[in-house]
Write a protein that binds this DNA or RNA. Structure first.
Lengths: 159, 159
DNA sequence: TCGTATATGTAACGTTATAACATTTTGAAC
DNA sequence: GTTCAAAATGTTATAACGTTACATATACGA
C-alpha cells in the first residue's frame, strides 16, 4: 500500500497510534537517536488524531494539568521528530502530522480535508516522477518539494 | 511559453515590472475591479524583484518616508490582488510574488531558489495532470493545490 | 443627492516561530 | 566512579506573520 488512507470515522485509533509509537521507538533505538520523554510525548500527541495539529495546540495539551513548558520546547521536539522522519509539517496550514511511512526517506504529498481537518499522505512515485520531469530541463536543482492538496475527503464528501 | 523563466541576473526588470503593471491595469478595467492607489502600489512593490516578498517587507516599503499604513491594509491589498489572480502566495515561505500568467485561472507550481531567493512559476499541464491522476481513485475532491519546490536556480548553481 | 456597497483607517490582539544564553542530563573515555 | 564534552532542556524575551472589530471615507448607481 502506497498511501495511508483517510481513516474511517470509527477506526481503532488507539491501535493505530500505538503502532506508530512502537515503530518510532524501534527506529530511534536502531539509529541511536534519543527519543526522550518530551519528544515521545509530543509524538504521541501528534498521533492523537489524523488531523494535523498546530504547535501551540500541542503546547496546550502538554501543559494541561499545570505544566510550564515553553513554545520553544515543542518546536525543538518537532524539529527532532521531523529530522528523524517521524513527523511532517504541513506548510499550508502550519500544522504537524505523524508520518505514515517511517524508516525510509520519501517526498510525500498530502491530502488535507478542509471539512474534518484530517490529512492523508500520498507518496505517489508517478506524481514525484512527473514533478521531477516538469522541472528537468529548466536547470533547476530540487532540494525540497511541498505538495499539499486541500479539498474534501471521501467521508466528508459522502455526508 | 509555459513558465516564467528565472530572470537572468542583469535582465531589464523595469520593463518587466512595467509590463506586468500595465497588464494588471487593463485586466482590472475590463473586469470592473478597482485597482486603487494602495493596491496598485502594493502590486508595484511586489514586482520590484523576482524574489517573493513578505507582507511586512511590503509594509516597511510602503511606510518608508513616514507613512503610517497598518499591516491590515497590506493584507487587504494582497487579498484583492490574489482574488484577481495578480499575485500568488507562497505558503512555504510566507511570501508573495507577482503572477506571470494573469488573465486565466491556473493551478501553478513554483520553483524557489534558496540562494538568491528568486521564484519562478511553472504551470505545467503534465504535472497538473499527474497530480489529478494520483489523487483520483481515492475519492478525494480537489479544491486547492500547493506545489512549491525549493532548490537552486540555474544562475545560482552556475556560480 | 441620496443611499448603499466598497474601500480604507485605527487600534488592539491572536498566532506561529525563533534568538540568546543558562542549566541539566547523558553517555563514553579514562 | 569520576571527568568531560556533547546533547538536551530550561528560561526569558522577542521576532515574524496574520486577523478582529469597529469607525470613517469614498465611489457609484438609482
Amino acid at each position: 500500500m502506497v498511501s495511508r488512507a483517510f481513516p474511517t470515522p470509527g477506526h481503532d485509533h488507539g491501535a493505530c497510534a500505538a503502532q506508530a509509537l512502537a515503530a518510532a521507538e524501534k527506529l530511534c533505538q536502531a539509529r541511536g537517536a534519543r527519543l526522550t520523554a518530551v519528544r515521545r510525548k509530543v509524538l504521541s500527541l501528534v498521533w492523537q488524531s489524523h488531523a494535523p495539529v498546530g504547535a501551540y495546540d500541542l503546547l496546550a495539551r502538554l501543559n494541561k494539568g499545570g505544566g510550564k513548558i515553553a513554545p520553544i520546547a515543542v518546536y525543538r521536539a518537532l524539529d527532532f521528530l521531523m529530522a528523524q522522519g517521524l513527523v511532517h509539517r504541513l506548510a499550508s496550514i502550519n500544522a504537524y502530522m505523524g508520518c505514515a511511512h517511517i524508516g525510509h526517506d520519501h517526498a510525500a504529498q498530502f491530502l488535507i480535508c478542509k471539512d474534518c481537518g484530517c490529512a492523508a499522505e500520498l507518496e505517489s512515485p508517478a506524481l514525484r516522477k512527473a514533478l521531477v520531469k516538469a522541472v528537468a530541463g529548466r536547470g533547476f536543482t530540487i532540494d525540497r518539494e511541498i505538495v499539499e492538496i486541500s479539498g474534501l475527503c471521501p467521508h466528508c464528501k459522502a455526508s
